[in-house]
């Protein structure tokens, strides 16, 4: 494999925190003999194996599919969400992005809405609650009409898919200077707003989801576009404009029963 021959040594500064209540601190570790073909998480695995065999607690981090789709993994690496490479989740980041002797600062996502559970793991259940507030198109199982009765222009289907590609990793919040969840929320709003199936609940949805986003304690969007740069699925901030437009429509123009539908969450 290209470039696998040489190995490197790295210095890691990793955030350690035993529980939500613990204050947390950085600790330093050496990652030795790292192969460029390793994924970032495999590098952490190697560090962890060594920690465990010396009786120490390994670094806790969320991960699951390790192919960039489940959205479980994600850490801040030298100030970049999911590391220095664009359009990549932490599990898909490979060590060839780094060089021998590099010093890496590895931190959990930081936001009030995402309490740190341990080391690099955070609680992202706020995202689930935002979806629960309205991120769906209601359909009773078994009651749907034939799929091809709903014609959807390819362009709409494609832009819905662009937005729906969100994996809920929360890199957008992590990268945002304001810890805003606008990109995540807007991606779901836009996915459903682009499709005819999403229309009936469109106004209610955007109001409720935005309300929930506020309740969770996220910051607000000031259009730095850091979220877009960090997003492993390259979701565009155009979705945020879409959400804002829908929101203002719902608040100012849409029939009144939609207006307060979200109050109380």
């Amino acid at each position: 494999m290209a470039g696998d021959a040489k190995t490197m040594n790295l210095r890691l500064h990793v955030w350690r925190q035993t529980s939500v209540k613990d204050e947390g601190r950085f600790e330093e570790y050496a990652a030795k003999g790292v192969s460029p073909g390793m994924s970032f998480l495999e590098m952490l695995d190697v560090v962890n194996e060594e920690l465990i065999t010396t009786g120490k607690q390994p670094l806790a981090f969320d991960h699951d599919c390790r192919e960039g789709i489940c959205g479980a993994c994600g850490v801040m690496i030298n100030g970049n969400a999911h590391g220095p490479q664009g359009a990549t989740t932490t599990c898909q980041l490979h060590m060839r992005s780094f060089s021998d002797g590099d010093e890496l600062w590895i931190e959990p996502w930081r936001a009030r809405a995402f309490p740190v559970l341990r080391d690099l793991m955070v609680d992202r259940s706020a995202f689930d609650r935002i979806i629960a507030a309205g991120g769906y198109a209601s359909v009773r199982t078994g009651s749907a009409r034939d799929a091809n009765e709903i014609l959807i222009p390819k362009q709409n289907a494609d832009s819905a898919m662009d937005a729906a590609a969100c994996i809920g990793c929360a890199a957008c919040v992590a990268a945002c200077p304001n810890a805003s969840a606008a990109l995540f929320t807007a991606a779901k709003v836009t996915h459903l707003a682009e499709l005819p199936q999403g229309q009936p609940e469109r106004m209610r949805r955007v109001v409720r989801m935005v309300d929930q986003m506020d309740i969770e304690g996220f910051g607000h969007c000031t259009n730095h576009r850091e979220c877009e740069a960090a997003c492993p699925k390259q979701i565009s901030v155009a979705v945020i404009a879409q959400m804002n437009r829908d929101y203002l429509r719902a608040k100012l123009i849409a029939p009144a029963d939609n207006e307060n539908a979200g109050s109380g969450g």
């Binding site: 769906y136 198109a137 359909v139 199982t141 078994g142 009651s143 749907a144 009409r145 034939d146 799929a147 709903i150 959807i152 222009p153 390819k154 289907a157 494609d158 819905a160 898919m161 729906a164 996915h191 459903l192 682009e194 499709l195 199936q197 999403g198």
Partner: peptide, 13 residues
């Protein structure tokens, strides 16, 4: 397929 389309699953068109 009917169910999923109704839910807004963005299948290719």
């Amino acid at each position: 397929i009917d169910q999923c389309v109704a839910q807004g699953v963005p299948f290719a068109r």
